[in-house]
């Protein structure tokens, strides 16, 4: 262990701002990447689902009797 106490660890030998800034921003940007990637997958699924439903509705409308 390089630090004597928890507050020593947070202080990072006087460099706390720079160290935690670097780690924080890195973690944040990776998190953004993960979120956008997972969201993309969900979006694709949703789009295909909506397209299938639309196709179903169109088919149902075509088969309806008493319309032009």
């Amino acid at each position: 262990m390089a630090f004597a106490s928890w507050s020593d660890f947070i202080a990072m030998g006087g460099y706390s701002f720079y160290v935690w800034l670097a780690y924080g921003v890195s973690l944040f940007s990776v998190l953004l990447l993960v979120i956008s990637t997972v969201a993309k997958r969900k979006k694709i699924f949703k789009h295909v689902e909506q397209r299938l439903l639309r196709e179903q509705r169109i088919k149902a409308a075509e088969n309806r009797e008493g319309t032009l």
């Binding site: 390089a2 030998g13 160290v19």
Partner: peptide
């Protein structure tokens, strides 16, 4: 962050290396 020894010149600021170099 916690167990590697501090650098003799750069102190604890060198701990940024653990994301800087891999990235």
């Amino acid at each position: 962050l916690a167990f590697a020894p501090a650098d003799y010149q750069q102190g604890d600021s060198f701990r940024i290396i653990y994301i800087h170099v891999p990235a």
